[in-house]
Design a protein around this nucleic acid. Sequence first.
DNA 1: TATAAACATTGATACATATCAATATTATAT
DNA 2: ATATAATATTGATATGTATCAATGTTTATA
Lengths: 230, 230
Amino acid sequence: MPKISRPRSCTRCPYQYKYLNLLGNENISSIQNNCMIIHFKRGENIIKQGTDVTHAFYLAQGLVSLFIEGEKRNLILKIKKAGDYIGLQTLFGDLKYRYSVSALEDSMVCMIKSGIFLETSKKNPDFLFEIMRGISLSYNYMYKKIKDINCKQLRGRMADVLLYFSEELYHSKSFEVPMTRKEMAQFASMSMENAVRILSEYKKEGIITVEGRKITILEEEILKRISELG
Amino acid sequence: MPKISRPRSCTRCPYQYKYLNLLGNENISSIQNNCMIIHFKRGENIIKQGTDVTHAFYLAQGLVSLFIEGEKRNLILKIKKAGDYIGLQTLFGDLKYRYSVSALEDSMVCMIKSGIFLETSKKNPDFLFEIMRGISLSYNYMYKKIKDINCKQLRGRMADVLLYFSEELYHSKSFEVPMTRKEMAQFASMSMENAVRILSEYKKEGIITVEGRKITILEEEILKRISELG
DNA sequence: TATAAACATTGATACATATCAATATTATAT
DNA sequence: ATATAATATTGATATGTATCAATGTTTATA
């Protein structure tokens, strides 16, 4: 069960709540008064595909995955980390969620009622503008993701996943993957068995080392070439 | 070669330029002064993947396809019709296009310099707000598209394409597809040969009739079931 | 601590889909 | 009008990838 609390002071937010500095004090307190802080444990559902869009989310701490639930399989589109907003891209459409979000690590999330968020952003063009920038960037990410799914094959997609962890998320050639093999497979859009198989191949080929969830990239250049060639 | 001209009066735009009514006269004339009207012929490129984002587009007349160019194949993500904006989803990120847009029919496009568009929208929250709504909706469409690609197989995806033409674009069970078989294949994310094959199958099964580009849906319910079952 | 449940691994097999090939048809250009 | 290229069609084949099955390993639970 998620633990719920209320923020003490959003003005002095210790989690660097983004773009809040662009708002006046009155707007910040309006957000604060309509904000809930919720703690999720690994595996818990933050957004459930098919439900109404009611809140904007800010991931103060933790790590979550955004994924589409399909009949046959899920597809993890994106990992969101501390400091990221969640759900802004579809906040303005007044619709139902087309994706789910769940916690990969214990996470702390600020939920702001969508109405308040919309009002505030309407009153503060600079704020809204930054939101739009974020949406544009995330759109570009989506295009890349679709392109990769459409063009690359298994080895290329798994290389992308490994490089994402190494370069984007952990900034290290050695890291502990924050998910199960099944989730890695969903992130790379393939079956779990093939995900395992390809990791084993890379291991045999001396490109990476694998010990459970601990992975080290030995031959980054080769991995990048595999990613580029697809 | 695209033919270029300038708008006479955007205030009395005959093409129902969306949300312009939310702007004051001074803003409209600012847009008008920074707007070019361009005529594209079928097949011509409106936006080229990889180039800089410099303009917002409004499709006054015609029909265009938005697609991702891949090494092996292209993927048509969306058809845009008269009255649609193009390129807003990534206008605010100040980046390069991750997709291409080309004319399926002879089209007339208004190009507004991105800077002007951004300025105007910053000064007019209501306008910006409507833009955001559009982006949210189009995001939802993307999620659906990705889900379909990820989950459905050939027959289901081709059913989707046919139903899209019938229900969304032409509002008729009988229509002339605005593209080649190859493009239909790219729209349904499959090889051209399989696109043709599946159309032939549907024909043999009495679900549709096909004469060149002219297609008539005979058994809509069956097609819908194929689409749902994937 | 025992026992079940979830997760991970590897090989064998089945299947969906792309690719190749041959040919017909239509559109475009000289 | 004729040549040439683009488009469309169908069947045969190759290939990538999922699925199935068996087994080992780790994690959660009673």
